[in-house]
Simulated assay, not measured.
Amino acid sequence: MDDPLPQRCLLCGATAGIRRDGQWHCAVCDWRVGDAPDPDLPPPRVDVVYYLRWRERIKIGTSHRPRQRLAAILHEELLAFEPGDRALEQRRHREFADLREGGEWFTADPRLLAHIAAVAGGIPPWDAYARWVADAYRR
């Protein structure tokens, strides 16, 4: 069960935590509360393939700065992130080529929606991204 953290998570800003091994960890990204990323190191690069919905269309794109990228794209809903770079994005474009409507936009077909649901695994996209960023910091 998640409990309130003694302070916001320094990585993702979440307020819910889990007490494990006598220490608080963020319930979203699993960052140990009280630890700070090394300010002398650049933040890690975490590439993602994103799936955005606009009406009955899905955009499959990629970014290593998803907050900035998604802010620049008109969409109704962020459906999922998948860890991966341009090579994975291109593989997804080929996989769903028969659904392409133009550019990186695809028809919201049940097959594509099932793939997105499997990729998401029931985890909110920004929570998954926060976990991957925390994992990258730990490496």
Rank of each mutant, 00 (worst) to 15 (best):
residue 1 M to C: 04
residue 1 M to H: 07
residue 1 M to V: 10
residue 2 D to S: 12
residue 2 D to H: 09
residue 3 D to I: 11
residue 4 P to T: 04
residue 5 L to P: 01
residue 7 Q to W: 01
residue 8 R to N: 12
residue 9 C to W: 03
residue 10 L to V: 15
residue 10 L to R: 11
residue 11 L to Y: 01
residue 13 G to W: 03
residue 16 A to V: 10
residue 16 A to F: 14
residue 17 G to P: 04
residue 19 R to T: 06
residue 20 R to T: 05
residue 20 R to K: 09
residue 20 R to L: 06
residue 22 G to I: 10
residue 27 A to D: 04
residue 27 A to M: 00
residue 27 A to W: 01
residue 28 V to P: 00
residue 28 V to M: 06
residue 29 C to K: 06
residue 30 D to S: 15
residue 31 W to V: 02
residue 34 G to V: 14
residue 34 G to S: 06
residue 35 D to V: 07
residue 37 P to R: 01
residue 38 D to Q: 06
residue 39 P to N: 03
residue 39 P to T: 05
residue 39 P to C: 06
residue 39 P to E: 01
residue 40 D to S: 08
residue 43 P to A: 15
residue 43 P to M: 07
residue 44 P to F: 08
residue 44 P to Y: 04
residue 44 P to G: 10
residue 47 D to K: 06
residue 47 D to F: 10
residue 47 D to S: 09
residue 47 D to Y: 13
residue 49 V to D: 00
residue 49 V to W: 00
residue 49 V to L: 00
residue 50 Y to E: 01
residue 51 Y to Q: 09
residue 51 Y to M: 13
residue 52 L to E: 09
residue 53 R to A: 14
residue 54 W to M: 06
residue 55 R to Q: 14
residue 56 E to L: 12
residue 57 R to E: 10
residue 59 K to N: 11
residue 60 I to M: 03
residue 60 I to E: 00
residue 60 I to L: 14
residue 61 G to E: 07
residue 61 G to A: 15
residue 62 T to L: 07
residue 63 S to A: 15
residue 64 H to A: 14
residue 64 H to D: 12
residue 64 H to M: 14
residue 65 R to T: 11
residue 66 P to S: 07
residue 67 R to A: 13
residue 67 R to M: 05
residue 69 R to H: 07
residue 70 L to Y: 07
residue 71 A to K: 09
residue 71 A to S: 11
residue 72 A to S: 11
residue 73 I to A: 12
residue 75 H to A: 06
residue 76 E to P: 09
residue 76 E to H: 15
residue 79 L to A: 07
residue 81 F to H: 02
residue 83 P to N: 02
residue 85 D to M: 05
residue 85 D to E: 15
residue 85 D to H: 08
residue 85 D to I: 05
residue 86 R to A: 11
residue 86 R to L: 15
residue 87 A to D: 08
residue 88 L to C: 05
residue 88 L to M: 12
residue 89 E to K: 08
residue 92 R to C: 13
residue 93 H to Y: 12
residue 95 E to D: 12
residue 95 E to F: 07
residue 95 E to M: 12
residue 95 E to V: 10
residue 96 F to Q: 03
residue 96 F to T: 00
residue 97 A to D: 11
residue 97 A to E: 14
residue 98 D to S: 12
residue 98 D to N: 06
residue 99 L to K: 02
residue 99 L to Y: 07
residue 99 L to S: 03
residue 100 R to G: 04
residue 100 R to P: 00
residue 101 E to Q: 04
residue 101 E to M: 13
residue 102 G to C: 03
residue 102 G to I: 02
residue 104 E to L: 15
residue 106 F to S: 02
residue 107 T to Q: 11
residue 109 D to E: 03
residue 109 D to C: 04
residue 110 P to E: 03
residue 111 R to D: 11
residue 113 L to F: 12
residue 113 L to C: 09
residue 114 A to E: 10
residue 114 A to V: 01
residue 116 I to W: 13
residue 119 V to L: 00
residue 119 V to I: 13
residue 119 V to A: 06
residue 121 G to L: 05
residue 121 G to S: 06
residue 122 G to D: 04
residue 122 G to E: 01
residue 124 P to L: 01
residue 125 P to E: 03
residue 126 W to R: 09
residue 126 W to K: 02
residue 127 D to H: 11
residue 129 Y to S: 02
residue 129 Y to G: 02
residue 132 W to S: 04
residue 132 W to Q: 05
residue 133 V to C: 03
residue 133 V to L: 08
residue 133 V to G: 04
residue 134 A to V: 09
residue 137 Y to C: 10
residue 138 R to I: 08
